[in-house]
């Protein structure tokens, strides 16, 4: 028979090893908190392994999904080969599954949840174009692909179709929505011209 255990007392107390920062002078600072700005919102997160904390082993993808509940960023392979976890940092598309959260201290991160207008809910033109072209099937790859597209169009407002294909070349899409994705992205590019 199942025994119902309480859930509140259960998170184990394993002392998290606090990340150390060695300064120029050689002194050691132990970080107890890190700061992240995600989609314009500032978070101060405690280092640790309790709920809501950041363990030094946590990847940014894990923190976004499990700690901040921003589950739009997906984990596919968790190994840098599929693009599901793509977010934007410093204007560039990067893989949040291959970044340690503690190394993102002070960074500003944009995720798929940060593209639509937070007040009106109006979609980013890329998102709208994906809706209009049904540029997805199962939709699991979509957040990552949209984030790479966002980074691309930020850097280059009028990429060629070939450039679009190359910048999305790290994204897995098993349903084969590639053709509609390209149509959707090129439509945004055309409208921007």
């Amino acid at each position: 028979m199942p025994q119902n255990k309480g859930v509140e007392n259960d998170i184990p107390r394993i002392k998290a090893t606090l990340p150390k920062i060695i300064t120029e002078s050689g002194s050691v600072i132990e970080k107890e908190f890190i700061e992240l700005t995600v989609n314009g919102e500032a978070y101060e997160l405690r280092i640790g392994n309790r709920h809501g904390e950041v363990d030094p082993v946590h990847t940014l993808a894990h923190t976004l999904r499990e700690t901040l509940n921003l589950t739009g960023t997906k984990i596919g392979c968790d190994n840098g080969a599929c693009g599901a976890c793509t977010v934007i940092i410093d204007g560039k598309a990067v893989l949040s599954c291959l970044m340690l959260t503690v190394e993102c201290d002070g960074k500003s991160i944009t995720t798929i949840e940060g593209l639509a207008d937070p007040i009106t809910g109006a979609l980013d033109p890329i998102q709208q174009s994906f809706v209009d072209h049904t540029a997805f099937q199962c939709g699991y790859c979509t957040p990552g692909i949209i984030m790479s597209t966002k980074a691309l169009l930020h850097k280059n407002q009028s990429p060629t179709e070939q450039e679009v294909k190359e910048s999305l070349s790290g994204h897995y899409c098993r349903c084969i929505s590639h053709y509609h994705v390209i149509e959707a992205v090129m439509d945004v590019v055309e409208r921007g011209r």
Partner: peptide, 19 residues
């Protein structure tokens, strides 16, 4: 991932001495 101590270093010398 299994846990590890994370250390950020400011200089090459710091990196070497930490290693």
């Amino acid at each position: 991932m299994k846990s590890f101590q994370h250390v950020s270093v400011p200089t090459i010398e710091g990196a070497i001495s930490t290693l």
